[in-house]
């Protein structure tokens, strides 16, 4: 299970990094979204995978069983998901503005139009 998740995270990193290197702003935002998913998966794996052992304290005990799943990585992920959603949404709006302003989808428009602007 860890192998599958690790390979998936690695794949997401690869695709995200590839998309980051393209000129298109829209692809760049998609790449960033994929990268944050990859990061979340890494936290999930790094925190240790435990199957079907919820971290609940049984009746009469004062601590969860020692082999129970660790709840912290999931809490971290939940926070990180909210944050990355907000920032990705901001980036998407920014790209929309940029595309509307430049009239085409390139994060770094070629210089012909820049030269016009400066003139």
């Amino acid at each position: 299970m860890i192998a599958i998740l690790a390979i998936t995270a690695g794949g997401l990193f690869a695709v995200g990094a590839y998309l980051l290197l393209t000129r298109s702003a829209v692809r760049l935002v998609l790449g960033l979204a994929l990268l944050s998913h990859a990061a979340l998966l890494s936290i999930f794996v790094a925190g240790g995978l435990v199957r079907a052992k919820p971290p609940l304290i049984p009746d009469g005990a004062i601590a969860p069983p020692p082999d129970a799943a660790d709840a912290v990585p999931q809490a971290l992920m939940l926070t990180a998901i909210v944050i990355s959603f907000a920032i990705t949404a901001f980036a998407a709006v920014l790209v929309q503005q940029l595309v509307r302003d430049a009239g085409r989808d390139e994060s770094d428009p070629p210089t012909a139009r820049d030269a016009e602007d400066r003139a």
Partner: peptide, 21 residues
């Protein structure tokens, strides 16, 4: 935004790995 988002991802992974280890 693009640079910092990438940087935040690295930070997040680092935090996750620090907790994991």
């Amino acid at each position: 935004v693009a640079l910092n988002l990438a940087g935040s991802t690295v930070f997040l992974i680092a935090a996750g790995l620090v907790y994991g280890s």
